[in-house]
Design a protein around this nucleic acid. Structure first.
Lengths: 148, 148
DNA sequence: TCCTATTAGTTAGACGACTAATTATTAGTG
DNA sequence: CACTAATAATTAGTCGTCTAACTAATAGGA
C-alpha cells in the first residue's frame, strides 16, 4: 500500500492556490499591492476603521501577522493607523485615497481570475465544488478539534 | 454587481489548505519536520541523491528556496548534501537515517489527513472533485501563459 | 586554446505567516 | 482605592517563498 503524495488532492489544491496567487499578483503588482494584502483591503472596503484584532479574526491570522502587514501597507501608503479615542489600547486601520484606488484594481483582478478559474464549469459543478470544499473544511476543522 | 471575496471559491480553498498544513504539522512536528518539508522528503524517498535543480523543478519552487530549505534540513539532520563527482557545480541531496525515519511519520500523517479530508465523500465525488480541480489548474495555467 | 555563454547554486533582502515574550492599557475584584 | 486579570498591540526570532545579484564551474565556438 504505497502512498504517492503527488496523487493527493491537497497536493493538487496547493498548486492551484499557488497559481492563483501568482495570477492575481500579475494584475495588481502595479498598484503597490502585494500578494497577501488583497484580503485585508477587501475587509476594509466592507468597513473602514476596524481594529487590528477584528481584522486579524476575519483574516484568520494572528495579531502579530496583522501588525506586520499593516506596517508595510502603511509604509506603501495604502492604509493608515489611528488610535481609538475611547480605548487607548486599540488602534484602528483606515484606507487612504491610494488604498481606495487600489481596491478597485484588486476587486477587478480577483473577479477576473475567479471567472477564469471557473471556465468550463457548469452551474451544477460550481455548486458541487463548493459543497465538497466545504465538507473538506468541516472535516479538517473536526480533526483539529479532536487533536488539540 | 457587488463582489464578495469571502464568497469566492479560492478564498475557501485557501482556508482549507491552511487547515491542512496545520493539521499535518500537528502530527509531524515531533520529528523535527516543518510544514514545508514533507514534499521534499517524499521526493527524496522516491529517489535519493537528486540534484537541487531536479528537486526544485519537482517541487515547483525556485532554486533559491530550495537552497534555504536544504540548509535548514541539513541543520536539523534530516538530509545531507554531497557534491556531484562528475559536475562540480551540482550538489546532490541525500536522506540521513533520521530523515528516513521521519519519512515514515510524514507518510503516515499525510495519509491520515488525506483520509480525514475525504470523509463522507463518495467515490464519484472524489473523482469529480479531482477533475474540477484539474480543470481549474489548467484554466490558471492558460491564464498565466496568456499574460506573461 | 582561450574567451564567452550558460548553468548550478548561493546570498541578500523583501513579503507572508507563526509562536513566545513584552509593553501598555483597561477591567474587575477584594 | 489598589492590585491583579485580562486584553490589544508590538517585537524578536523562525520558517516558507520570491526576485535579483553574485560566484563558481562547465560547455562551446572562433
Amino acid at each position: 500500500m504505497d502512498f504517492n503524495y503527488s496523487d493527493t488532492l491537497t497536493h493538487l489544491m496547493g498548486h492551484v492556490i499557488k497559481l492563483h496567487r501568482q495570477s492575481v499578483d500579475l494584475l495588481i503588482q502595479e498598484h503597490d499591492v502585494y500578494p497577501g494584502q488583497p484580503p485585508l483591503l477587501l475587509r476594509l472596503a466592507e468597513q473602514d476603521g476596524q481594529s487590528q484584532k477584528e481584522l486579524a479574526n476575519k483574516l484568520q491570522v494572528t495579531p502579530a501577522t496583522l501588525t506586520v502587514m499593516v506596517n508595510r501597507m502603511q509604509r506603501t501608503g495604502l492604509v493608515i493607523r489611528k488610535p481609538d479615542p475611547v480605548d487607548q489600547r486599540v488602534s484602528r486601520v483606515f484606507l487612504t485615497a491610494k488604498g481606495r484606488q487600489a481596491i478597485d484594481a484588486v476587486k477587478e483582478a480577483l473577479q477576473q481570475i475567479e471567472c477564469k478559474c471557473l471556465e468550463n464549469f457548469s452551474l451544477e459543478e460550481k455548486l458541487l465544488f463548493r459543497r465538497l470544499l466545504w465538507q473538506m473544511h468541516e472535516n479538517l476543522q473536526a480533526f483539529k478539534r479532536e487533536n488539540t
